[in-house]
Amino acid sequence: MHIVVCIKQVPDSAQIRVHPVTNTIMRQGVPTIINPYDLFALEEALRLRDEFGGEVTVLTMGPPTAEDSLRKALTIGANRAVLLTDRFFAGSDTLATSYALAAAIRKIGSTFGAVDVVFTGKQTIDGDTAQVGPGICKRLDFLQLTYVSKVSSLDLEARTIEVERRSEGGVQVLRSNLPCLITMLEGTNQVRRGSMINALNAARAEVVKWSAQDAGVEDIQKCGLRGSPTVVKRVFAPTPRAEKAKVVEAAGQPPAEALIDEIFKLRPKLENEMFELARGF
């Protein structure tokens, strides 16, 4: 079985700061990590490989420095890493990104063996769109299984797969066919630590580096800024509310009491409503 896991190298958002004066992102020195949601996808892929045999190829599109994340994925246990990097990809929106990644996955299939399953995280922490997974899937004409919490069975002979999928208000148990694309929900498995042997191998491993041409991208016009139907016109910081928060002064009163008085003073109807709510519990 051959599984491709798409990962993205993202800035560690916990450490992003906005310049207080210019309102621009201060990217310098912000460390990068593998998008945390992708780790659950990688783990699930490795688990399936360990159970059913085969290989896991990790794929990312990004600048040359994204190689760091691929090596981390090799350390965790992936068999092979492919870096799709080309200046033509700069400025890609989700539609252009899915075009390039789908081309690379086809190439991975023809070079290293037919792809049975593509995994992605449910979304990234920098873009937060959850659009690239379904985008790749449609372009490859695979079956789409998003927000999967569990791959419960896989039959390589019959080419079928059963998964549990989070939906509004419940879990769908689905049976579908291979090849499929799965976006994995967070917290659904325990991501393994890389072994010492993997770490040593990862340091020595050769990361496959492909340009758009190497990856067999057919139409360069569909890549990057040019191939992106959406355009970011304006980036700005939200305006603060006109009036600052009213500071609750506890004049001789316990602060909790003063706060409740203020709440009911500002919203007199709340008192009755809260009574009704509290009674329900």
């Binding site: 800035p11 958002s13 992003i16 906005v18 355009v231 970011v232 980036v235 700005f236």
Partner: peptide, 11 residues
């Protein structure tokens, strides 16, 4: 950017 800024997008 992880919710630190807002952006306006056109298709």
């Amino acid at each position: 950017f992880g919710g630190s800024l807002l952006c306006t997008i056109y298709t």
